[in-house]
Every structure is written in C-alpha cells, then in structure tokens.
C-alpha cells in the first residue's frame, strides 16, 4: 500500500459516501444517472467475485463490502425509495446499458491476462468502470445544471482514478514484475474521459460561477 493508492481509495470512498449522504439527506436524486449507478454496482460485483475466496487484508475486504453496499444502496434508493424515486429523471437518463456492457464484455473475452472466468470478469469490470461515467456525463450535459454535490461527486470519482495512476507508476518503479498493462490502459482512458469535465469544473470554480457543461 502506498500513499497514492490510499489517497485514491479514500477519495473513491468519499465520493460514494457524498452521493449516498446527498440522496439520503435531501431525499432527492436530481441530476444523478441511475444508469451509471447500476453500472458501478455491476463493476463492483464482477470485480469482487473473489471477496470470500481470496483474503488479501482486512482493509481490502472491508472496503469491498463498503463499495458493494453503497453502490447497491444508491441503486435501491433511486429505484425503490418512495420519495427519492420521484426525483429521478428517467426521460433524460436514457443511455443504454448494453452499449457499454456488451463491448466491454467482448473486449474482456479477447483481451485479458488469463482466460479464466474470474479473470475475464475482473477484466470486464476494469473496462466497464472506465466508461461507466458516460451516462452521468451525458445526463449532466442534457440537464445543463449541475448542483455542486453532483459536481463534487464526479470530480472525486475522476480524482480517485488519477491518484491510482500515480499509484501504478509508483508500484512500477518499486515492485519488480508489477505489470498490469490492461489496468493501466483502462485507468488512463477512464481519467481522460473525465478530463473535459475537470476542465469545466475548474473553470467554474476559478470564475466562481455555476458549472455549465457545453451542450
């Protein structure tokens, strides 16, 4: 464990807790894409298949349980909670899951480190995580208004993966044979997808004005 990875995990944890607290407190999911949240639940499910078979550390297991619990709770709130669900904008949140799930699955079958079920599922979760934010970014551009909690949520999500890239660079230099080029490529693609959002986020923060994404 290095400081970049710990900072990345904490940023990631903070992003999902910010979102969960927002939905729980104001009982609204305005501006939140259910599609993205469902994709994240799928990412964590396919990535943590080994949660009960391979014990890495208490930290690792606890964090996996928190990510699984929070992502499914958020999906439950938006789908089932009698008050929250009313603020879900299903007419705008129309991104089709399978446009992302199918290509990631096909890619994972052909490009992976080892052709076993768990390894293909793990690789699929990496590819899917890289693109899972797209429905959320599309929704933000459509609704054009971004309340600052949603803006912070997306920013923290992008920041966590950027910190992970620093972690991979650090591990590349400090640990022999630490080679996970699939992880690195997926991580860089994911962070680049946030890049334009980062640009507008910083612009709005610098000019102290409301965050507006171009149509």
């Amino acid at each position: 464990m290095n400081i970049f990875r710990l900072a990345g995990d904490m940023t990631h944890l903070f992003s999902v807790l910010v979102l969960l607290l927002k939905i729980h407190t104001i009982k609204s999911c305005a501006g939140i894409s259910l599609k993205t949240q469902e994709l994240y639940a799928l990412v964590f499910t396919t990535r943590y298949l080994d949660i009960f078979t391979d014990f890495i550390s208490l930290y690792n297991t606890v964090m996996k349980l928190i990510f699984l619990g929070s992502s499914f709770s958020i999906v439950w709130y938006i789908r089932r909670h009698k008050i929250v669900r009313r603020s879900y904008d299903k007419d705008q949140d129309t991104f089709r899951h399978y446009f992302l799930v199918i290509p990631c699955l096909v890619l994972a079958v052909f490009i992976n480190h080892k052709f076993t079920f768990k390894e293909v599922m793990w690789t699929f979760s990496l590819y899917l995580e890289a693109v899972a934010i797209l429905p959320q970014l599309v929704l933000l551009q459509r609704t054009r208004n971004i309340d600052n909690l949603t803006g912070q949520y997306v920013f923290l999500l992008g920041a966590y993966r950027a910190l992970y890239i620093l972690n991979w660079i650090y591990r590349h230099f400090t640990e022999p044979h630490y080679v996970h080029w699939i992880t690195w490529i997926a991580g860089v693609v994911q962070t680049l997808l946030y890049a334009d959002f980062f640009y507008y986020y910083f612009q709005s923060w610098k000019n102290n004005e409301k965050l507006q994404l171009p149509a």
Binding site: R5, D9, H12, D50, D54, I56, N60, M63, K64, F67, H113, K114, E119, W122, Y164, N167, H177, Y178, V179, H180, T183
Partner: peptide, 10 residues
C-alpha cells in the same frame, strides 16, 4: 503464467 493475476487493489 507471467505476471501474478492476484489482484490486491480495489
């Protein structure tokens, strides 16, 4: 198999 596919990251 070359690199370990043991995934210790979240």
């Amino acid at each position: 198999d070359g690199q370990s596919t043991e995934h210790d990251e979240l």
